[in-house]
Design a protein around this nucleic acid. Structure first.
Lengths: 355, 355
DNA sequence: TTGTAGGCGTTATCAC
DNA sequence: GTGATAACGCCTACAA
């Protein structure tokens, strides 16, 4: 319980050193100092290495000069910040994509200003306003509504933006090939002989969830085994959602023999539900997840899932954003997915199962 | 591949509306507009509801006026932003704490500016500089080195700050009672008869990992069964680290009968290792994690773990930070933990096990 | 190479 | 209640 932290008394310590401070101490003029510190010497190559420049840099270091990005931004009309909106960081998928975004942005000299929308419409809108207020140069939106309704304001504002993870219409976006991934999951289960299946379908307004579900269901339909509508249940993407959804699907008398969850976390929740009901994954009921998050392969019964390159998706979204900022046309980018067969899927049990 | 996104041609659209724009259109002076929009009318109660004020607000809405936070910050000498440094967002613990921080900060009118340090010293330092450059009013540091070496610069700068998750010395911090949590894990395993145990000890320079390991080891020592030093292996906090560490501990001829992992993710990695070696968690080898992340209870063999209130820790860190910003003395806050017994722990197998 | 001047959009402090 | 004015810290023409 010891007190430390900063000087005991009043608020923050001494005022930050400014360019003027450095200029005074170094005996040069502010403009000169600014030029030296920014390396803004027109064409003259190594002229910046003159004694003067060295002295100025020395002083700056001594007084702990940190440029005031606010002021610079005001003057330059750009902040070097990219806004990022995500539903929530505890979603591993969002976090991984965000890591990709952060890295790629940093590589190009941009900072990221992240906000969580909690999948709430009002908050979503407030995020955009706040990010604009903070002067972000562009926006990466990981939380779009599938109908694009949240994007019209943005579009009107003229702020360059790109969607990630959840696409919407023809807006520029970077996602997994969600529909194709859904198909892969379906083909796998069909090949194993499953005919009665259920879908933990994610949030009904999220483009990725919709596409994954669509790809899955259309494949079953094409094979002549359409998925019963009451077996497609909306869920959240987290494990709690998957558990609740699976409870509902499995407790019905004529439960399905396999479940497709549009996220790994939901799939793990479904595993919890199976366990509670004394069912063994891969033998009694098969489960397929989506994304292949790192722990998927470490589970005691490793999870069969559809892998999507989350970090790459994040990185690519930055590349696309930079292109859009340059005035290039946006595009819709979809990364192919890959089915990873592990042990939560197995042959469909005999038709006699479960009454 | 359709192109959309923003106007086809040049960069961002029309320049943002400023106070001046609004003032012009409304026929008032900039200062007046500013006052109205900020609700800055001295004591006169509802005078702001005059027709003039209404008109101004109307115009502002029409032109889509968004205040320029950069400029306001420059003038007011405060940005309303709190910097947050975390190792990485894909660590569920960090993400959950961050969610708590974000929420609490928003409640008090602060935005958060997050940066990932990747547990890299150089990056850590750069984060601080960048956050200062962006003018954060204070800092929450989730990535401190246990010896506090990364904090001296910060302290000297006079920027108010608080540590979260990983404490360091007497610097103000909010963490779980890591040492106590380690003890709880140890007592549980001791009661089950385990004598030969191993520790997946986390990063050797992270305060939380150190304390958890310490609490665990000292309890075994006090019970007369000191943990063999070569059975305390440093790991990362993620599942890959846990897997590698467990591989090492279990492949040794005389493997331990139980493992304590300082994070749930590492514990899950250990479960993966067990599985590969045909060992059953809770029967052949017991495993205890730390944090009780949401999926812990949904695993096919649910994880015994030490619960810590991650979100609360994040929220509290904001409260503490606000206090420090007011000049109050910082304190070291530790939240009690709770042992959650599930199924990865069981009685120690007969002494004959494993040669 | 170095100095000068003006302004980015706000807000705070005057005077009216 | 409203209008004028001066910064906040930085950058960039332009002039010397």
């Amino acid at each position: 319980m010891t007190a430390v932290g900063q000087g005991k008394g009043g608020r923050a310590g001494a005022r930050r050193a400014t360019l003027a401070t450095v200029a005074d101490l170094a005996g040069y003029h502010v403009s000169t100092v600014s030029r030296v510190l920014n390396g803004t010497t027109v064409p003259g190559a190594r002229s910046a290495s003159s004694a003067a420049a060295e002295r100025i840099r020395q002083v700056a270091r001594e007084v702990g000069y940190v440029p005031n990005a606010q002021a610079a931004a005001l003057r330059r009309q750009r902040t070097g910040m990219v806004g990022v909106i995500m539903a929530r960081m505890t979603d591993t998928v969002a976090a991984t994509i965000y890591e990709g975004v952060e890295r790629a942005a940093a590589e190009h000299g941009y900072q990221t200003l992240v906000m969580n929308s909690w999948d709430d419409d009002e908050t979503r809108a407030r995020c955009v306003d706040l990010l604009m207020a903070h002067g972000v140069d562009a926006l990466i939106h990981g939380d779009a509504l599938a109908d694009g309704s949240s994007l019209q304001v943005l579009e009107r504002s003229g702020l360059p933006f790109v969607l990630v993870n959840r696409g919407a219409g023809a807006y520029p976006s970077v996602t997994a090939d969600d529909r194709g991934g859904g198909r892969q999951a379906a083909e796998h289960l069909l090949a194993l002989g499953h005919r009665e299946v259920g879908v933990l379908a994610g949030l009904p307004y999220a483009g990725n969830a919709i596409e994954r579900t669509r790809g899955f269901c259309e494949t079953f339909a094409e094979a002549g085994h359409p998925v019963r509508p009451d077996r497609v249940v909306p869920t959240t993407f987290d494990s709690a959602g998957g558990r609740t959804g699976a409870d509902r699907l499995l407790r019905a008398g004529d439960g399905p023999t396999a479940l497709f969850a549009v996220s790994d976390a939901a799939a793990i929740g479904a595993l919890g539900s199976l366990r509670d009901q004394g069912l063994h994954p891969g033998r009694d009921v098969s489960v397929v997840g989506f994304n292949d998050m790192p722990i998927a392969g470490d589970l005691t019964v490793p999870l069969t899932t559809v892998r999507s390159p989350m970090r790459e998706i994040g990185e690519r979204s930055v590349a696309l954003l930079l292109a859009v900022m340059e005035g290039e046309p946006g595009e819709v980018v979809r990364f192919p997915t890959e089915l990873v067969v592990r042990e939560t899927t197995g042959p469909a049990p005999g038709l006699t199962r479960g009454r």
